[in-house]
Amino acid sequence: MSRRPASRERDDRGQVTLLIIGFASILLMAIVMVIDASAAYLQRQGLDNLADGAALYGADLGSAGIYEQGLDDQRLLQQEEAVRAAVREYLARAGAGASYPGIDVAVRVDPVGRSVTVRLRAPLDLPLTIPGSPSRPMVGASSTAAVTVVAGD
C-alpha cells in the first residue's frame, strides 16, 4: 500500500483582510472622484451662467451706432470700452469675485462679426483631493453674444 504524505493545510488567515482593505481603498478613491467631479461640474456651470450673462449684458449696453446710422437688419456695432465697462459692472453686481476668488476675465469685441466674447477662468475649489492630482486646477467658461435688430411688420 502506498501512503500519501500528510498534506499541510495552507494558512489563509489574513488574505481576506488584505482583499477587504484593497476594495475599501478603491471604493474610497471612487467616492472622492465622484464628489470632486460633481463639484467641478457645478462650478463650471456657475461660470457658464456668469459668462452668458456678462456677454449678453456687455453686448446690450455696448451697442453703438443706433442714433448715428439708424437701424438696419444687421447686428449692432459694439463700442469696446462700453462693453468692457458693462461686463465689469455685471460681474461686480453678480458677486463673481466673492464666488470665484482669483477669477480671470477676458473680453473680446469682434468688429467684423459685431459680437462680444467673454472668457472666464477661476481656480477650482474641490472639497477633496486625490494624491497626485493637480495642486491648483482651473475651470473656465466662455460665451459670445450679439445684438441683432429685427424689423417689425
Rank of each mutant, 00 (worst) to 15 (best):
E89C: 03
P123H: 02
V112N: 13
A122E: 10
A94D: 14
A51L: 13
V32M: 07
D11P: 05
A55D: 13
T17C: 14
R119Q: 11
A55H: 07
V116Q: 09
P127S: 02
D60C: 00
M29P: 01
P123I: 03
Y100M: 09
V87F: 03
G70P: 09
V83T: 07
A92Y: 01
L42R: 03
L28D: 02
Q15L: 08
S25T: 06
L126S: 03
S38L: 06
A55K: 07
A24Y: 03
I26E: 05
V107D: 15
I31W: 01
I26F: 12
T117H: 13
R93I: 11
L56V: 07
M29Q: 08
I21R: 00
I21H: 01
R44D: 12
A30T: 09
Q69R: 14
G22F: 12
E80W: 00
R114W: 03
E80N: 06
F23Q: 04
I35M: 05
V112L: 13
E9C: 06
P101G: 14
A122Y: 06
E81H: 05
V16T: 13
V109Q: 14
G53C: 11
L18Y: 03
D60G: 08
A30K: 00
L91A: 07
A122D: 11
D110G: 07
E68P: 00
A40F: 01
V16Q: 11
R44P: 06
T17A: 15
V116L: 05
P111D: 09
R10D: 04
A85F: 05
R75H: 09
P123D: 09
D110F: 03
V32K: 02
L56K: 06
V87Y: 02
G53E: 09
D52M: 03
S99H: 06
N49S: 15
G14T: 00
D12S: 05
G14Q: 04
L18H: 01
D72E: 12
R121I: 10
